[in-house]
Design a protein around this nucleic acid. Sequence first.
DNA 1: CGGAAATTTGAGACGAATCAATAGCTGTGG
DNA 2: CCACAGCTATTGATTCGTCTCAAATTTCCG
Lengths: 242, 242
Amino acid sequence: MVMISSSAAPENLELAALRRLSRLAPVDQAALAAALGEQRTVRVHRDLIREGQEIVEPRLIVAGWAARSRILPDGRRQFLSFLLPGDLIGMCRQPRPLAVATVVALTDVVYCVAPPRDAIPHLTDAYATSGAIEEAHLLGHILRLGRLNAQERIGDLFLELHERLDLAGLVSRDGFEMPLTQEMLADALGLTAVHVNRMVQQMRRDNDVKWKNGRLTLVDPVALTRKIGRASIRVSLDAPAG
Amino acid sequence: MVMISSSAAPENLELAALRRLSRLAPVDQAALAAALGEQRTVRVHRDLIREGQEIVEPRLIVAGWAARSRILPDGRRQFLSFLLPGDLIGMCRQPRPLAVATVVALTDVVYCVAPPRDAIPHLTDAYATSGAIEEAHLLGHILRLGRLNAQERIGDLFLELHERLDLAGLVSRDGFEMPLTQEMLADALGLTAVHVNRMVQQMRRDNDVKWKNGRLTLVDPVALTRKIGRASIRVSLDAPAG
DNA sequence: CGGAAATTTGAGACGAATCAATAGCTGTGG
DNA sequence: CCACAGCTATTGATTCGTCTCAAATTTCCG
C-alpha cells in the first residue's frame, strides 16, 4: 500500500520528482540532483507541518502522498489538497509565516529540503509556476465542493490526480498507485466514507474506473472529462519567452 | 446599492485601500498614493478578467466588490472568492499566465493599476503577504464548502467578510455594506438561493445577524465565531524582524 | 493465524434541491 | 404620478441526495 515499499529503485522515484520540477522551467538537472542530496522519510499518519506552528524549511516531496488538512473542534476533518511527488511543502513567499494548515503524511513520505531559490538558475520561475499550479488546484477543489455532486466530485478528483501524476511520470497504461482510502477521499470531498463507497461502486458498474489493490485505472479519461464537464488546468508549462 | 455611489468622498475610499495594503508591510504611504494616480471604473456585471485570456496588468481594487468565478458547461456557477477594496487582481508570480478564472464585478468597481513590485520599498513583501492571505482565504473556503452545513457556511462567510472589511477600515459599529444578493451568496457557498433565504431568516430570528438595505450587522461576531467553530486567520501582519 | 483497518450492505432520517407561485422593491418611461 | 418590467426576496409542497447508525464482510499486516 505504501508506494515506496515497492521494488523500484529509489533513484527512479527521485527522477520522477526531478522530471516534474524540471518541466516547470528550464533547470539544470545536474544541479538540482545535487541539491537533492539528503533525503528523509516521514512515517504514515505523522505530521510534516502542524497548523499554527512556524514553518521550518520548504521541502520537496520525492515519494509518497501527503495532504493539507484542517480539523474542526468537533472532529470533522477536511483535506484541503493533496501533495504528490514533485510538490513543494511549506514554500511561501512570506518572511516568517505560520502554517495555515496541518500537513499529514498519507503514506510514508520521502522528502528533501527544497533547494533555495537562488541555488539554481530559473528555480525561482519553477517555484512560481509550481505555486500558480497549486492555486489552480485549490480553485478546482472549490468548484468541486461547491457545484459537483458526489459522483462528479470523485470522478473530477480522480482526473486531477491522474493529470498530476502523469506530469510526474507516475502513470502507466494500467493506471496509477492510489494509496487513498475511501475515508480519505470522503475527507477531501466533503462526503461520508459510506457514500463514497456507494458512488465508487456505481462508477465501477458504469465501467468508468477500475480500482483494486491500491491501483486506480481511469478507463477513458477523456470521456470521463467530458462526462463531468471538467476543465483541465492549462497553466503554461513552457519556458517564458526570452 | 452600489457602494461607491454614496456621498463619501472618493479620497476616503482610496485611503481605505491604502490603509489595507500598508498594514501588510511597512510601505511609504506617500509613494503608494502617488502610484494610485489613474483610476478606472468597471460597471456592475462586467468582467475584469476572462478565464483563459492572458492577464493584462495586476490591479488594485480601490472601491467596490468583485468575485472570481467559474461556470460549468451546464450553467452552474461557482464563486471562488470575493475581492474587496484593497485586494489585488491578477497578481501572480508567473511570467505569462492565463487566467484560471473569470473575475466579475459584483458592484461598480473602482481600480487602479497595481504599482510594480520594485516601485516602492517593501512592496514585494506587501504583495507576498497579500498573496498568503488570499491563499488562506481559499483554504477557509474549502473547509466551509466541505464540512460546514448551510447555516454555518453563511455565518462563516459573513465572519470572513467582516474580518476583511474591518482590516480595510470599512466596518463601523452598525456593520458594513454588503452588496451581495442571496443568489450571489448561494453561488459562493454551493447552495440554492432559496435555501440561503431560509437560513438567513433563521439567523435573523436567532438574532445572529441584521441585514437590511444592503447593510449587514453581525450582532456578536465573537459569539458567532465560537458558535461556528471558525478559526480566524492569523497570518502575521507585523513587520518581519530586522 | 488473529486483530485491526477498510470496505460493503441495509434501513431510515434529514438537509438541501426543485418547482412553482407570490410579494416587494427599483428604476423607467409614458 | 402611475404602470409596468425586471430583479430580489419570500413562501409552500414535494423530491432527491446524502448522512447516520449499525452490522457484516473482506482485506491487510504483523
